[in-house]
């Protein structure tokens, strides 16, 4: 565990930040995932494998937390914590075009973008992880890319649009 933290703490923290949008929440996510992975006695051949385990656990814990939060937000609006305390990442986000762009995304949109474009998962795999229909993920990605596209000039990105099915109209 010590070797893992020495070698990969920064990368894991960055992944946690991208998922959660908060440096502190990202660090907490890293620690929760490490506990989850190491509580279970299993053979982990090397530190690279351990990092992969922890990243997968971070993704699972984050998605579980999002689902729980959404569930309780429905039955108890106002009872779910809305904001983490400001941290270094907020300062970076304020001055960084990517940070400003990410800040415009909802939690679901942000997660979909990170899984699709940072983890390089397919839309189908993103949908499976988020337990959503493919079409719903495409909609999140499309909305997110639209928002990022508004920052495209600053980001110097070429925004590609994911196809989304048509809306029904009465």
């Amino acid at each position: 565990m010590g070797e893992l933290l020495h070698v990969a703490a920064s990368r894991l923290a960055a992944y946690g930040y991208l998922l959660t949008g908060s440096q502190h929440a990202g660090e907490d996510l890293v620690q929760d995932a490490i506990v989850k992975v190491f509580v279970r006695r299993r053979r982990i051949p090397n530190v690279q494998a351990a990092e992969a385990y922890v990243r997968a656990a971070m993704r699972t814990i984050h998605l579980d937390a999002m689902r729980r939060e959404a569930r309780w937000r429905k039955v108890a609006p106002g009872q779910v914590a809305q904001q983490e305390r400001p941290d270094h990442a907020d300062a970076v986000a304020d001055t960084d075009a990517m940070g400003r762009a990410l800040a415009t995304l909802s939690g679901q949109e942000r997660t979909a973008i990170v899984l699709r474009y940072f983890d390089d998962l397919t839309v189908t795999d993103v949908a499976a992880h988020m337990k959503l229909a493919d079409g719903t993920v495409k909609r999140y990605l499309s909305n997110a890319l639209t928002k990022l596209g508004e920052q495209a000039e600053a980001l110097e990105l070429t925004v590609e649009r994911a196809p989304v099915g048509p809306r029904r109209r009465s």
Binding site: A9, S10, A14, Y15, G16, V92
Partner: peptide
């Protein structure tokens, strides 16, 4: 961006 945002986390 993720790397820039987590200074101190390591």
């Amino acid at each position: 961006h993720g790397s820039d945002a987590v200074a101190g986390s390591q």
